[in-house]
Write a protein that binds this DNA or RNA. Sequence first.
DNA 1: ATAAAGTATCTCAGTGCTAAGAAACTTTCA
DNA 2: TGAAAGTTTCTTAGCACTGAGATACTTTAT
Lengths: 165, 165
Amino acid sequence: MADHVDLVLEQWRARRPDLDPSPMGVIGRMSRLGALFDAELRRNFGKHDLDRASFDVLATLRRSNAEHSLTPAGLMHSSMVTSGAISQRLDRLEARGLVTRAPSETDRRGVLVTLTPAGLELIDKVLPTHVDTEAQLLAGLSADEQDQLAGLLRTLLESLGDKRD
Amino acid sequence: MADHVDLVLEQWRARRPDLDPSPMGVIGRMSRLGALFDAELRRNFGKHDLDRASFDVLATLRRSNAEHSLTPAGLMHSSMVTSGAISQRLDRLEARGLVTRAPSETDRRGVLVTLTPAGLELIDKVLPTHVDTEAQLLAGLSADEQDQLAGLLRTLLESLGDKRD
DNA sequence: ATAAAGTATCTCAGTGCTAAGAAACTTTCA
DNA sequence: TGAAAGTTTCTTAGCACTGAGATACTTTAT
């Protein structure tokens, strides 16, 4: 049993036997899986006239609270992209009538982004197909293995300072 | 013990109790780790006047064979980007004198990309710092846990059809 | 031998991101 | 209170990628 990364590791051991390439066994595989996941998830988004960025915003609003609203800063933290990227994502979503921007009532610098009925309808339609696609992508692992994997990834995230907020 | 994704999962269970969000526990964490890894690796590349794309090409050539040469198609398969991206990466690397492009001797459509001495020197200088950075990023897991993680990721890659070539 | 299909590489317009910085507002603290 | 520091959002230039398609060559099939 060997995947592409096993070949890469072998090559490194042959060319640079002085280096221990084993970290690549983890990070290289995660990067490769990330690309494969992304391609498959994008295929599903495309069916619904969405892209990863728009889905990300709509889904974050959908789960955030009963009003489906959040500030751009909140969206930014959740998405791990810059404030400029969020501004542009919101421009696109607003133009499509999927979210609204309203001035914050407590901070005059602030903005409150809210899902419109059309935005809510769209994300609620796409969500089940999205979770389903993800489940398919993980189907090569048993439920136990998936839990194990999630646990290791959580440990790693915590060690890197990933917090609940 | 809880990371950001645990919060996300809780939110989904509250807003959409009809969906089983557990696949997100794996895929969401991988995506988040990918972003964190990327940022840290980029920081290291930056110290050596490199970016991820250039490092990727130079490293692939470095490990491929004793001549440090490969076709654009070979680089493309290894990198999981389109042919257009490879062309542009090679343009940049060629302009910096780190690789050369020569016509293939067996196929007149083909091109052979080779590391120049300057390219070899640069990648050999950066490589140890790169592996070191990766090792640091994984330091939150024991050696055993890292092996376990690599194994689960390999199983997943194989289930998705990732091959040795 | 020739046509059709396939492969290798490149070009380029469009896209979404980052980084830097501007503008408006709020908080801190001397 | 007033100045400085911090926060929130937006703007924009520059960058690397994708997707579509062009070009040139090779392989396959008739």
